[in-house]
Simulated assay, not measured.
Amino acid sequence: MAKILVTDDAAFMRMQLKDILTKLGHEVVAEAANGIEAIDKFKETTPDLITMDITMPEMNGVEAVKEIKKLNTDVKIIMCSAMGQQGMVVDAIQAGAMDFIVKPFTEDRIKEALDKAL
């Protein structure tokens, strides 16, 4: 079982991810609505894995990945992106993300990404 921080500016997306992750036997230790919150929650909860949306207000996912990786190079991050954000996904992978899931999510795809990451 992994401790996971879910980051997305859309509350319904966080809820959907949380439901799937919980069903897969993981614990969602915190949620964040933007990159700045994600960094704060990461410091508070030291999760094993972070799911990170790309497009968010205040600080986007790519910037947040860079900052979090400065704090802990070992943390595992999976990006969540809408269609058409391939360029930003590449930036995120270069910044240290391990994988990405395209929205809308399927439970199978999330499980596959988690199995690969953990």
Rank of each mutant, 00 (worst) to 15 (best):
D19Q: 14
A2Q: 13
G25Y: 02
S81D: 01
A11N: 12
I4R: 15
I39D: 08
E37I: 00
D108G: 07
R14N: 09
V29K: 12
M59I: 10
M88F: 11
M15L: 14
T55N: 12
L118I: 14
M13D: 09
N60S: 01
P47K: 15
D99L: 05
M88S: 08
A82T: 00
D9P: 12
I50L: 15
I93R: 13
V29Q: 07
Q86W: 12
K103G: 09
G61I: 00
I39P: 01
T7F: 07
K69D: 07
E67C: 03
K66E: 12
D99W: 04
I101W: 06
M1N: 15
N34M: 10
L17C: 07
G25D: 05
S81F: 04
A64R: 05
A95S: 07
D8F: 05
M98T: 00
A32T: 00
K3P: 00
L5E: 05
A11I: 12
M98E: 05
V65C: 13
M1D: 14
M56E: 09
I110W: 07
L71F: 10
M56K: 11
S81L: 06
K18F: 01
F105N: 04
K66D: 10
I93N: 12
K116M: 13
I78R: 12
I54T: 02
V89F: 04
I77Q: 07
A30N: 11
I77E: 03
C80H: 04
K76S: 14
V62T: 11
L49F: 11
D19A: 11
A30T: 04
D74V: 01
D108T: 01
M52A: 10
M98L: 06
D74Y: 06
D9G: 15
Q86P: 01
M15S: 14
A38I: 03
E44M: 13
T22R: 09
D99R: 08
A38T: 02
A10S: 06
F100H: 09
E58M: 15
I78T: 07
M59V: 07
G35A: 08
M56P: 05
V62D: 10
D115F: 05
D8K: 08
I78G: 13
D115C: 08
A32S: 06
K69W: 10
I39R: 12
A2E: 13
E31R: 00
D48E: 15
I54S: 03
I4H: 13
I101H: 02
P104A: 15
G35C: 04
A2G: 07
K116P: 03
K23G: 11
Q94K: 09
E37N: 03
E37S: 04
A30K: 09
G96F: 02
P47N: 14
Q86F: 12
A11V: 08
